[in-house]
Write a protein that binds this DNA or RNA. Structure first.
Length: 467
RNA sequence: GGAGAGGUGGCCGAGAGGCUGAAGGCGACGGUUUGCUAAACCGUUAUACGGGGUACGCCCUGUAUCGGGGGUUCGAAUCCCCCCCUCUCCGCCA
């Protein structure tokens, strides 16, 4: 969520940001509603102050008059007293009535203001290239393992035509697609035997790297969350269609629940409505969680194999740091570096893509995607077609923490001084089975077997080859 | 699922229609004292939003907030209604 005060002061900045992201947004309408609401609020508060002042000296008077009324016996005197009481009561009552009307105005405006505010995107940073779609993303860096060149056809270098991962999985008995579909429909799969072991090895290796190599705290994160967590992390309302919805309220339960599409939701939700101690920052969390995605709107896309599935597991890293732009940027680079190190250790060619403004979501100021080379995806004559997205690193400034109401100050909750919203960042460490694709395809051998990358072997009982 | 207890500031804990943004204590912070530490003493100690000012550090001012929402009343932390949450015991279950 953006800062409404900042929007009031500089609407241009946010209009420009939205247009660079290619998002239509009702900023003028929002400002107009906000103006109306504040006018009503100011007036209402003045009336209320007046009412309280009146009541302060009216109370004793009323008490006295009511006492007199009780004692009075003469009918005329009683009537007169009665009338004075009515009079005294009339003034504050009228103020109260007016205030109530204004309050009704505010209450009518508030939901619309809040709804529009949630849709206003964080403006992209000035150094993010302007573009309208993923086509205009800019390649920033490329890495190939020694002795391999992803821009040269696989067959030329290795002496045999690569098999796609789906075929490798079937031939090696790593995945049972038909039974997955029988159980759960399209985009479902069953990892079997060494397929399951490879999947777990990837996850555990990635988790261990982050924890023991980079000092991140390992956490579990709920994957079934309330709507506030989805709104707070910025996935709702825009991405509502992507999430599985459990309508518990319709069954008499307290609140509806949603299955999360990434561990980021659980990790970031952890500190919603908290005031953190500045001394504890940055918080560095890593989780491994099952991710659920409806893939609405992706019908017909990547239907075969393990690339686009409804359920997968992901190791996700999240950093919550002080509200400092330079620090945010430094963490972004570092978090990407961790992934580069991981992919190198697995011998996977990959590249970094600077996402253009049109490819950013509402919540990020900047996003770098990492794509791994998947020989099976490469189309003849177009080497870049072989890259498939495996990671995405977002820099969000305070957009997410403002929505989540995650703040910090020296001394934390019990501390003194003004609070600030934290900055947050997130990046994939490893998503599997998608990451199995480049691993299987890159490390396949002429005989149809697959060499297990060395770092994964300890997690697979020491085996060197799947075959 | 059944029965009971309870939600007040950073924490503990009073208050039972106006003088209560809320006693007292703890903690934290600032100061006095001190060779150092401790103790003692004095002081400060919420947040959000609106309006005004600003040397952009804040300052002044209004409103709201005692789990949430509604109601009674001239006036509600306090009375009434609804909801939510936490805890304890029993049952069921991984």
């Amino acid at each position: 969520m953006i800062d409404l005060k900042a929007l009031r002061e500089n609407p241009r900045h946010y209009k420009d940001g939205a247009s660079r992201k290619g998002m239509a947004v009702e900023i003028d309408r929002l400002l107009q509603l906000d103006e109306q609401k504040r006018a009503a609020q100011t007036r209402r508060e003045q009336l209320r102050a007046e009412q309280t002042r009146l009541e302060k000296d009216l109370g004793p008077q009323l008490g006295k008059l009511q006492g007199d009324l009780k004692k009075a016996t003469d009918a005329a005197e009683r009537a007169q007293l009665q009338q004075r009481i009515e009079q005294l009561r009339a003034a504050p009552a009228s103020l109260k009535g007016q205030a109530a009307e204004l309050e009704a105005v505010e209450k009518r405006l508030e939901p619309e203001i809040a709804a529009i505010l949630l849709t206003i995107p964080l403006p992209p940073d000035p150094d993010v290239p302007v573009g309208s779609s993923a086509e205009q993303n800019v390649e920033r860096e490329r890495w190939d393992p020694p002795g391999f060149d992803a821009s040269v056809p696989f067959a030329e270098q290795r002496g045999f035509a690569p098999r796609g991962h789906a075929e490798l999985c079937r031939r090696l008995g790593l995945v049972d697609f038909p039974r997955g579909v029988k159980l759960s429909g399209a985009r479902s799969y069953v990892l079997t035997g060494r397929g399951m072991l490879l999947h777990q090895a990837i996850l555990r290796y990635a988790l261990d790297t982050m924890v023991h190599g980079h000092g991140f705290a390992a956490m579990s994160a709920p994957v079934l969350v309330r709507e506030e967590a989805m709104v707070g992390t910025g996935f709702f309302p825009a991405g509502r269609e992507q999430a599985y919805h459990i309508p518990e309220s319709a069954r008499g339960g307290g609140s509806d629940l949603f299955l999360t599409g990434t561990g980021e939701v659980g990790l970031m939700g952890l500190h919603a409505d908290e005031i953190l101690d500045e001394a504890d920052l940055p918080l560095r969390y890593v989780t491994v969680s099952t991710c659920f995605r409806r893939e609405a709107g992706a019908a017909g896309k990547d239907t075969a194999g393990l690339y686009r599935v409804h359920v997968f597991d992901k190791v996700e890293q999240v950093v919550i740091c002080r509200a400092d732009q330079a620090e945010s940027r430094a963490w972004h680079a570092r978090m990407i570096g961790y992934v580069q190190g991981l992919l190198r250790s697995l011998g996977l060619p990959h590249r970094l893509l600077q996402c253009c403004t049109g490819d950013l979501g509402v919540k990020n100021a900047d996003m770098i995607d990492v794509e791994c080379w998947m020989p099976g995806r490469a189309v003849e004559g177009a080497p870049a077609s072989g890259y498939g997205e495996t990671h995405s690193a977002s820099r969000l400034y305070d957009y997410q923490c403002r929505r989540l109401n995650t703040r910090y100050r020296p001394g934390g909750d019990a501390g003194k001084g003004p609070t600030s919203f934290c900055h947050s960042l997130n990046n994939t460490v490893a998503a599997s089975p998608r990451l199995m694709i480049p691993i299987l395809e890159m490390h396949q051998q002429a005989d149809g077997t697959v060499r297990v990358p060395e770092p994964l072997r300890p997690y697979m009982g020491g085996i060197e080859t799947i075959g």
